[in-house]
Design a protein around this nucleic acid. Structure first.
Lengths: 204, 204
DNA sequence: TAGGAAACCGTACAGCTGTGCTGTAATGGC
DNA sequence: GCCATTACAGCACAGCTGTACGGTTTCCTA
């Protein structure tokens, strides 16, 4: 029988290469040749796992959501005081270390491209729903109310749902600014921004 | 002597074409051929006004800042109550009509590209300072304190300066969300977001 | 150990890219 | 009228792009 490789794992490795290239060269620099080189394979080898460039990029973009979701889920299982849990949840979406910085960079590139590339529309919607969900989790956690039943479910209290809306806008702004001006934000100042916002939220 | 054309005006027309193409096809779709076609000239004609593509894109991106600045200046001359003036100032940076939608789209594309294209770094810094300045103007206007002396000058009151910082983050988030999900935001809901934020600001 | 299937490579090709360059049309002062 | 000078058109060219495809290596199983 043939040489056996773990397809799932191989695709994840290739996705890593896509992220690396996009974060370094931008999404228009994510050519099949460059991705292949970053992954240490040939273009032919790359196409064994992805039929075309579009499929590769979409898969790589979706992988970001999965990556964030996994970390968020881990925080939900941990036993933490409400405010602290909210802080941790939100921090997973911000460029606080190398990994998250790459994720944010790739995500922004994909989001902006989705404005003119309809094949990324579904991804954009899914990511928006995911972000909103995390914001609802954070608000619920802060106020000690039950977490929403799942992605797409609103908070029972309309006022808190509005807080989640506002928090979502704030988080997107913080993401954009911290990604665009890394020199002006240390991880600690970013955390302080989130902390302050959560404080205002609960005082309100 | 030769045929005489208004160089300044001609360049502005070409910039319009760049904006149109970028908002429709993304920044990687802004090729010299497509821009030339959108402007109704040949590639050779285009190069008569811009030595290369990079110069064209940078000039077009800078033009957005000038466009917003002009509208902001007009509001500063008008005699309006503080809160209302702040609202108008901030609205000039949001995609509330076709013109501003195009500006926002182009600006986001350039900002994200600037993360990997150092030739846009200066533009990014300038735009950030401009946005921050408008936010400071809005905060000052809301609280009836003197406007800052110019771009780069902080508000005298440290608490208000922090409010401007927060407002800036919020505005960037609102810009990103409204540009990415135009279907979910009518101009009126966008205005309501700004109004609510200004209300929270003054109550604080 | 032989076979075969999957993994992977490298080239080929058409199409698009930015830019250089040459040719042409138009205009306003003499 | 003339013609210098600018505005503009369009082709040339090298380089990069995504994708198709035939060949080669590698490994497991029978």
């Amino acid at each position: 029988m043939p040489k056996v490789v773990d397809h799932q794992q191989r695709r994840d490795e290739l996705v890593r290469a896509v992220w690396e290239v996009i974060s370094r060269e931008g999404i228009e620099g994510a050519t099949v040749r460059r991705v292949a080189q970053a992954a240490g394979v040939s273009v032919g080898g790359l196409r064994h796992y992805f039929d075309n460039q579009q499929g590769l990029l979409i898969f790589a973009a979706h992988a970001i959501g999965r990556s964030v979701a996994a970390r968020v889920a881990a925080h939900l299982e941990a036993d933490l005081p409400g405010r602290e849990r909210a802080q941790r949840l939100l921090e997973e979406m911000l460029p606080l270390d190398g990994n998250r910085r790459v994720e944010v960079e790739v995500w922004l590139a994909c989001l902006v491209r989705s404005h003119v590339d309809e094949s990324l529309a579904e991804l954009r919607e899914a990511a928006w729903a995911g972000e909103r969900f995390v914001c609802r989790l954070a608000v619920a956690s802060c106020h000690g109310v039950p977490a929403p039943g799942g992605v797409g479910r609103l908070l029972a209290d309309a006022g808190l749902e509005r807080q989640a809306e506002r928090l979502h806008v704030f988080m997107d702004g913080l993401t954009l600014q911290t990604a665009s001006f890394p020199g002006q934000f240390t991880p600690e100042t970013i955390r302080a921004f989130v902390r302050e916002e959560l404080r205002l939220l609960t005082d309100e």
